[in-house]
Design a protein around this nucleic acid. Sequence first.
DNA 1: CCTCTGCAAATTGTCGACACTCGACACAGG
DNA 2: CCTGTGTCGAGTGTCGACAATTTGCAGAGG
Lengths: 261, 261
Amino acid sequence: MGNSAFAMDGEATGKLENLTLWERVHRHLREEILANRLPPGTVLGEVALAESLGVSRGPVREALGRLAAEGLVTVRPRRGAVVSALSAGEFREAYQVREALETLAARLAVPRLAPAEVERLQAFVDEQAKRAEEGNVERFFQANQAFHELIVSASGNRTLQEMHRQLVGHMGRYRMRSLVLRGTLKRSVGEHRAILRAIRAGDAEKAAHLLGEHIRVPQRRLEEASDEEVVLTSAEDAPHLPRKRFVPSLRSGGSHEGDGS
Amino acid sequence: MGNSAFAMDGEATGKLENLTLWERVHRHLREEILANRLPPGTVLGEVALAESLGVSRGPVREALGRLAAEGLVTVRPRRGAVVSALSAGEFREAYQVREALETLAARLAVPRLAPAEVERLQAFVDEQAKRAEEGNVERFFQANQAFHELIVSASGNRTLQEMHRQLVGHMGRYRMRSLVLRGTLKRSVGEHRAILRAIRAGDAEKAAHLLGEHIRVPQRRLEEASDEEVVLTSAEDAPHLPRKRFVPSLRSGGSHEGDGS
DNA sequence: CCTCTGCAAATTGTCGACACTCGACACAGG
DNA sequence: CCTGTGTCGAGTGTCGACAATTTGCAGAGG
């Protein structure tokens, strides 16, 4: 059958692709889930995945376990794995934690930031402004994410970095198109500019405060429109469908979207 | 000989123990590592573990993968899994993150705390005071952990709770006996009392601030005694065992699989 | 005496197969 | 007509075995 449906993994860490099989499966599924090609509620059958990917159930199982440990899928001891869905409440929770984490990151990073890094931050903000003007939401989000990740990365705290990565990974699936889309992009750029100003001034506390407020904005929006599934992309309701909706065949779209730092 | 080397899993979730095999292995190894019976650096051979536990390599492998996802062990793609060690720097990092998390938890929890929960906090503090007087460090730590976990739990933020649990799990192995041991216990109780006072007063901000300072105390100590391995590794428990740096077998059962499970 | 290279052992990565459990459907009874 | 129960099917959980790769050692060469 269709074997080796893998796309290439753009990971230029310097090491060549010496990844084991289950690692590749893990990355593949991770990408698929984060890209929302496997919407929440999708049942991931081991045999189906195995056949689809051209490997045996071993690596698939291992990758699924890893995915479950990351919280991207949920396994019920005997009933297989489903792509986990975040409720609006959990999404708000994640925002709260993210605020705490990035606030800490800002406090730690500001005294450590090298001039070159500040310039990179500036470049990200400028790109955001440009993308906002263009209306290129995808690119805007990328630059936005790069901005935040650079701050977290510059904190020098790898534990913090890891937790933040995990958190953003969970939240990343829910592009809040209808939410932040409208006029908030420019506002976000303005907030980033203010944060960057505080960073340049070396005022870690102010930068952290501004960053906290900045993150709290979508959080507020969520609270206002609570319980409504404003954000969730694909519906997973109708739990009593006549038949299961499998995804036995998943195709590699070839979108080499590197999530790497 | 009953070769099932599993100990009791103190987990009374109310549901009966329908755990799968790899889950039991996972819990077992987790307990062993957290109890420092498997010190950092120990190489965990799959076959050795499998034979020792009376299962095949499958569940062992799965459990090891899960453990690696939690950060308790580190696997090198072809060279097996070792119990991961936290450097002093990582330990300090974890404290920073923990401070941010628990501070957030306090802010969220204070307005939500039911009177009964406040009383439970009080009970924990009282028990800590008693244990500190007795010099019962183990019990003291338990009550201490219960205090902090209750605050985190009362925040109502399950994401936060999960991250905190994970973090504490990583840090839990390093009982800082020689550090916090001496006169710091009573001081810790005093700080907890102050926090509890702020909680009773409904002053979330003050409680959060005090909690942050409280957590920052061991952090400061670590910075002072930086680079020294003051804390790391376990105390001298079980010195009667032969020296083992690389011990693949953790149980010398020798008996073949006897009773059916 | 030191170093490089080839072989061998050991251990992990992967695979296919079997048993057991859970879910669903159909049939019989009230 | 509704409900309880028995059976069938699907799918996971687990096991044993094979193969690839890495590590260590031994021997030869410089």
